[in-house]
Design a protein around this nucleic acid. Structure first.
Lengths: 143, 143
DNA sequence: CTTGTTCCTGTAGCTGCTACAGACCCTACC
DNA sequence: GGTAGGGTCTGTAGCAGCTACAGGAACAAG
């Protein structure tokens, strides 16, 4: 109705940020590292985003939530962008990432085991002697 | 026996690195951020470390292995340095860190669950359709 | 004395953002 | 038409926790 001088489907950067939940500056960062394409600009140089940008940014954000690195996301996106990807390709990348995630969990569980066991031996007393400090100073009271 | 012109108990930076397994440059970094004290110097300005440095560096490294941040380690060390610490103080810091570790584990397990479930639905076929991509593009085939 | 290794310093790079400064531009109101 | 206030633009610096490299001084071995 109104003689809107810009396409109603075009979003400003702040609007893209709001509608995806992504930080404003992060969008610019993703453009600078090539994850997001350089968007078209208004005559004054302001970024104008379309639906494709919203979808791509959502893709990136969901991949980040799943712990994929930028490099992995770059890989996933380039597969999709080429259009010639297969489920097997994607699955391979996913499985590799899953391995990384599982190994991080194992590392953290190792830490958790040591910490919780050590702390359980803490008396909470007002004395300097402390099992956790013993572990850290490697008074490893083993055998 | 030999007329060694430096105290046999004094280590060069490379020797401290070797005997603790710490990276050479990391030692300098720890000094620059104040975790390690500035060591005494030889007349020519070369760092000379003693047993106390070895122990402190080992402390830092073990704390890092347990995932303590620099800030937490700084706290632990300042407790110890003050000499007036209690087991209760240390336990409190340890428990806080344990909470952080457990929350990281929970986050990663959430990721693991989604990833493994999704990937298990991958066919590995040479077709573009892929459950993992569906999740990432939020074709969330729910309900 | 020369060669090669180590040491010194300062600085830049990595990941994945986040934030700020200073300059534009755009909109609303009067 | 003017102006006040926002939003946008760019470049750059900062966070953790290192790691690496350049260019120079010193030292140890032959």
């Amino acid at each position: 109705m109104a003689t809107d001088h810009s396409d109603a489907s075009e979003l400003k950067r702040s609007e893209l940020a709001r509608c995806t939940g992504c930080n404003l500056e992060t969008i610019r960062y993703y453009e600078s590292v090539g994850l997001m394409p350089d968007p078209p600009r208004s005559p004054a140089g302001h970024r104008r985003y379309g639906q494709a940008h919203v979808e791509r940014l959502n893709f990136i954000m969901r991949a980040r939530e799943l712990g994929f690195t930028m490099e992995e996301i770059r890989g996933l996106l380039s597969l999709v962008d080429r259009g010639s990807h297969t489920c097997a390709d994607v699955e391979k990348m996913g499985r590799h990432h899953l391995d990384v995630v599982r190994s991080k969990i194992r590392d953290l569980q190792g830490i958790e085991t040591i910490l919780s066991e050590t702390i359980s031996r803490c008396t909470g007393a007002s004395t300097p002697a402390c099992p956790l400090l013993d572990v850290l100073t490697n008074n490893h009271t083993a055998s």
